[in-house]
Design a protein around this nucleic acid. Structure first.
Length: 334
DNA sequence: CGAATTTGACCAGCGC
DNA sequence: GCGCTGGTCAAATTCG
């Protein structure tokens, strides 16, 4: 049901064509599902191999073509925010974002609900991380979980979904999980498994299921935030293996950073087959995705994923498999 | 024997 | 109101 709504919204917003258009130069993308309170949202994030960012680049529905360029040396992280339909002076529209986001939110309170939804739908964020520009597109799922008149609806934790190409269903992510349920998924031969963090004070949950459009893809959805450090992965190991930006992201947010951790754990466990699969397919220059498409009428998360010829070992080395799948500021923003 | 998993039952939300 | 579906519970079973 939720996914069906997502499809509707995406078509409304027009991001589908945007995704298609940039797919050739997109180096990585993922779908992220956030739910909080009575509001749900779905977005996709794309890493663009572009150095010369121009806000008009993201002007829907006619984005210009983008040519990938070599990665830049690590730079200070910048965070940018803009609204679609960029201002008249494109290159000056990039500005510090956090406060703007807050201000935007405040302003939208003043308008009626439809206008507010429209504004939220079209809000986009652009981040620069280590010389890469990340486009964070966030749009509502097209519905607000009907707020109960009595406001008795149970609050849902923020959720984070990502896809991993793996032969292993339950990817090691540094935390210990206890399986508490399994359900058949409608229109899919693959069941969905439900896990809870085994730490007593921590109520983080995750769902794991395979995409039935591509059985090699595992869709993992995390809900909530861990209230404790990873019991499996010593911090020192992490500190030695991952760039500062990755660590700071995890520390600053308390978020699980699931893909980052799972990739790292695969290293540690010498699960070579899975590791190579992950490295190959998640390496920025190998991973091309036709966006956060949800156009499959049966409701799959995935539309089409293409894997290009391997060519990016340098990227892999320099950027550590894009450990910052979600840059820290994105997580801070929600 | 304790921990983890399995699996059918149950419940809540939603659409018709 | 009813049926469908997603999510959770908990007893039974399996595993180490």
């Amino acid at each position: 049901m939720e996914r069906k709504e997502a499809i509707k919204t995406e078509e409304t917003v027009g991001s589908s064509s945007f995704s298609d258009h940039i797919s050739d130069s997109c180096q990585f993308s993922g779908i992220f599902d956030f739910s909080e309170g009575d509001k749900s949202s779905l977005g996709f994030m794309e890493l663009l191999g572009v150095q010369d960012y121009s806000p008009s680049l993201f002007d829907l529905p006619h984005p210009p073509s983008m040519a990938p360029s070599a990665p830049l040396p690590p730079t200070a992280v910048k965070e940018c925010s803009e609204v679609l339909n960029p201002p008249a002076t494109p290159n000056s529209s990039i500005s510090s974002a956090s406060s703007e986001a807050v201000n935007d939110h405040e302003q939208t309170k003043a308008v009626d609900e439809e206008e507010e939804e429209q504004q939220e739908k079209t809000k986009k964020h652009v981040f620069e991380v280590d010389g890469f520009f990340w486009v964070w597109s966030l749009f509502l799922w097209g519905f607000r979980l009907k707020p109960k008149k009595t406001n008795q609806k149970r609050q849902r934790e923020p959720r984070f979904a990502f896809m991993t190409k793996s032969e292993v269903d339950h990817l090691e992510d540094g935390y210990r999980w206890r399986k508490y349920g399994q359900k058949a998924v409608k229109n899919s031969p693959f069941p969905r498994s439900y896990y809870r963090c085994t730490t007593s004070s921590c109520n983080v949950k995750k769902r794991v299921e395979r995409s039935f459009t591509d059985p090699t893809i595992v869709v993992t959805t995390y809900e909530g935030q861990h209230t404790h450090p990873s019991p499996v992965m010593p911090r020192q190991m992490l500190a030695g293996a991952l760039p500062d930006s990755s660590l700071s992201a995890g520390r600053a947010t308390g978020f699980a950073m699931p893909m980052q951790r799972s990739l790292f754990c695969h290293y540690q466990q010498q699960q070579r087959q899975v590791q190579q699969s992950l490295i190959h397919n998640l390496s920025p220059s190998n991973f091309a995705c036709n966006g956060g498409g949800l156009t499959n009428p049966a409701g799959s998360y995935l539309r089409e994923i293409r894997f290009c010829n391997p060519a990016g070992s340098a990227l892999l080395r320099d950027h550590g498999l894009l450990q910052d799948v979600v840059p820290s500021h994105m997580l801070k923003e929600e």
